[in-house]
Amino acid sequence: MTDQVSPKESKAALDAALKMVSVDAFEDITLILADHNTDHFKIVDQPRGELDAEEYSFGSIFVEQASESAGIICIPLPNEKFLQFNYWN
């Protein structure tokens, strides 16, 4: 899983990421977030994991699976940045 991030830092990273994207990308990201339990949001320069086949308005996500139902998701953002966070079901 991703490095520990304080709740305040995590919220700030998610808020910043959502301000960077288009309306369509915002909607896609909120749908991805609604499908999982999530935490430890941060903006990173390099994605972790493998490119997922599913396409969204912003492109494809990267997924690093730690188990069948948990891992890390990285969503591409403008300026070659990524929103990275833990997910689990």
Rank of each mutant, 00 (worst) to 15 (best):
S22I: 05
L18P: 01
A17W: 04
L33S: 04
F26Q: 10
N89H: 12
A66R: 05
F41H: 01
K81E: 01
A25M: 08
Q4P: 09
L14P: 04
D35V: 03
V44E: 06
E68S: 13
S10E: 09
L33W: 09
E27R: 14
L14G: 06
T30W: 07
M1N: 06
R48C: 10
V44W: 01
W88S: 09
L83W: 00
L14A: 10
L33V: 14
L33N: 12
A53P: 05
D39L: 10
Q46H: 15
I32T: 05
K11W: 10
M1C: 09
E80C: 11
F85H: 02
R48I: 09
D28K: 00
D24Q: 15
E54N: 13
H40P: 14
F58E: 00
D15G: 05
E64A: 01
D3V: 05
H40D: 15
V23Q: 11
E64D: 04
C74Q: 01
G71C: 01
K42P: 10
M20T: 11
D52Y: 13
Y56S: 09
F26C: 13
I75L: 05
T2N: 10
N86D: 14
A16H: 05
M1I: 07
F82T: 03
M1S: 14
E9L: 06
I72Q: 05
K42L: 13
A12E: 05
Y87S: 02
K8Y: 10
S60C: 13
I73W: 06
D24V: 09
N86S: 12
D39Q: 14
I43L: 12
C74L: 03
V5C: 10
K19M: 04
K19Y: 06
I32K: 02
F82A: 03
V21S: 07
F41M: 14
I32L: 12
A12N: 09
Q46T: 15
A70E: 11
Q46R: 11
A53T: 13
E64R: 01
P7R: 01
E55W: 11
I73F: 04
Q4K: 06
S10K: 02
